[in-house]
Write a protein that binds this DNA or RNA. Structure first.
Lengths: 393, 393
DNA sequence: GTGAAAGCGCTAACAT
DNA sequence: ATGTTAGCGCTTTCAC
């Protein structure tokens, strides 16, 4: 009898409310501004006014509202607010990958800047896939993000970017050279690549090559190649040999071997990023080539670990975190209608860092016959032999 | 006259609508379901039914709605939907930092899994700051995220985590050992650290130390120390010496120097992550110590670059991407009320990778006097001297 | 098969 | 100073 009574009583209001918030066996935060108003014995507008300090209110009212709030543990629903204000305080951030520390740092910089300004960051990694890129931008747009920071695969051809432009959503590119009147925070890839060419020439190299991963899907790599080629030509070198890799660099060693055979005069390689440069060093070694004696390597990005390896990696140093943060500030300025932050001088957006991986060529590199005929595994260099020993001990 | 007419006409409805969407000089997507309904000459409910395939509709109606939709370029507002459905299809993801590739990879894995399931990821990096952590969780909760994946600084004491538990929001920990009945994807830090102790012992080391960054704010580091200590004790070694670093490792060399002087018998160091291990190798070298001859180093995480350095880094290999993806799947299963994915066997959540940085101790390490009296800069080892030369050339 | 209307949580205009 | 109400974009009864 009493059980029945309980059921009747509890079913008139409470359970209805609860039920609505049950999903997957989970009960969600059910207390709304209306509950607070009721609890405080006032209208919802008063609660809003008190909590947002957006209008007059008596001390007494404030008291009651505050009390009700922490009585009930109330917190505003941003969803309700967003609908009302058509502002979400959320920014879409689209980058190719976080595996590359350049993007990871940039994202962290942007996220930090946005957070400080009261914005949250909605992150998408596209894996260099233009389709995912487009889809992500569509979804983020539907979520009504207030702005975008993005690295697109092709700034001139990106459908997603176009739709952002059409809708005139505040945005800023990152690591994409800006087409037309687009805003962008980016390394001046061409100038930097030219500096690499200069560095090679200064050491006395005459035959150099360019090595890129995802050449097709990365306009950065293409810009770098262009700049490198121009830098070479300026210095009277012929066009650099180009080796592009599509897949993950498992078979880099083999590809490199073929590449070096095809270009026997090569004494220096510019890799389009530091990871690739490091991998190239490793591959060169397992082909029996010394770095830098037989082959000099220059990377790009300036990731920290480049200073930890032996020999240290010669590279272009950039500041991805600053780039991310800058792009964020640009977006915020567009949103607020305030003047945009000054872009860093393109010429100062990078610097060359010398390193042990770059040295004068000892002589014309002996062509690849040695490396070609021997497979790395059963023909370790002396160094490798030592490691093998240590490992098997 | 015609101009006036134009003004009058355009001001009656359109401009009102436009105005509402102007912010910072920007006009936002104004077309709503109501516009579509009007354009198609039907009620909003019909539009909703057609587009969501959530009820009956005549072929004719469908036709008109579709036409209207791509006539107007309509897209649903997720905000409206969220308010109505109290579901946002958004997940909060909280990690300490993206500078550490372990988290970057994990985030990417989680984000990918969520994206495939139709969820977006709201990312926050806390910089290991518990206050930011708490604040972030509060904000994300207000944004009504449907779930959380998080690495907290202290799983037992995190206010943010508590509030998530109270509100019963679906969530899964990442890289935190699960307290009580919490779900968590994590490396078994203690077992892994014990394996490190075993590896040292196997090579004949008798005196080893533990090196950690942010020991206080990382329960991971503490777990690893605990396990390492236990592993040592099991093998009859005395408690490992502990060196904790708070700041960024600029002065690691000096700290290491002091540490080694205080523990002259030390022949091996277990660093709580690979970056730290790499930095330690560098510091040891600039103190004139050979790795592994004078000092063996073992890292933790198994980041790729550890295989690229010379000597390669002995370390515990983990699979952060899989961890992130697993945590994501766990959250999704809670949301959907489906059975959770099987956790990987804790014992198999890591593996030991041998490397050149670990070798038998040549002898009791000569104590620090050499290193102590000489500052690294003016007393480079031969190797360093060579680099210096190359750099200044 | 279709439309009108209520209501999700909130803010702002408008009463009082 | 404070309460009432309309409406943000959407889904979902509930009539017809």
């Amino acid at each position: 009898m009493s059980l029945l009574l309980f059921l009747i009583i509890s079913s008139n209001e409470d359970t209805n409310k609860w039920k609505r918030f049950h999903r997957g066996g989970i009960v969600r935060q059910p207390v709304t501004i209306k509950d607070v108003a009721q609890h405080a014995g006032c209208g919802v507008a008063s609660v809003s006014r008190v909590l947002n300090d957006s209008g007059p209110s008596s001390a007494d009212l404030r008291q009651r509202v505050i009390a009700a709030v922490d009585d009930l543990g109330f917190e505003f629903s941003e969803v309700g607010r967003s609908l009302q204000s058509s502002t979400t305080r959320t920014i879409g951030c689209v980058v190719p990958s976080l595996a590359n520390p350049v993007y990871a740092d940039a994202v962290q910089g942007a996220q930090e800047t946005f957070r400080l300004a009261g914005y949250q960051t909605l992150l998408v990694c596209t894996n260099y896939d233009p389709e995912i890129e487009t889809q992500a931008i569509r979804t983020l747009t539907a979520k009504q993000v207030d702005g975008f920071v993005l690295t697109v695969s092709d700034a001139l051809a990106s459908d997603g970017l176009k739709s952002i432009q059409n809708r005139e959503i505040p945005h800023c590119l990152l690591f994409n050279m800006a087409p037309d009147d687009e805003q962008s925070w980016s390394v001046d890839d061409r100038s930097a690549a030219m500096a690499v060419a200069d560095a090679f020439v200064e050491k006395g190299h005459r035959h150099v090559g360019f090595l890129a991963l995802k050449f097709k899907s990365s306009d950065r790599a293409r810009q770098r190649y262009q700049g490198f080629a121009e830098g070479c030509s300026r210095n009277g070198l012929k066009k650099p040999a180009l080796l592009e890799i599509d897949e993950d660099s498992q078979n880099l060693t083999d590809l490199l071997n073929v590449f070096l055979q095809e270009n026997p005069a090569l004494t220096g390689i510019f890799a389009s990023n530091d990871f690739l440069a490091l991998a190239t060093i490793r591959s060169a070694r397992s082909l029996g080539l010394g770095v830098p004696e037989d082959l000099s390597i220059i990377g790009f990005d300036g990731i920290e670990v480049g200073t930890m390896v032996e020999p240290s990696l010669a590279t272009i140093v950039t500041d991805p975190k600053m780039m991310g943060s800058g792009a964020a500030r640009t977006v915020l300025s567009v949103i607020d209608g305030t003047p945009p932050p000054a872009l860093p001088d393109p010429e100062l957006s990078f610097s060359f860092r010398a390193g042990g991986s770059l040295a004068p060529p000892v002589a014309e590199r002996a062509d690849g016959e040695k490396a070609a005929t021997l497979s790395p595994s059963n023909n370790p260099t002396k160094k490798n032999a030592k490691i093998q020993l240590e490992r098997s001990k």
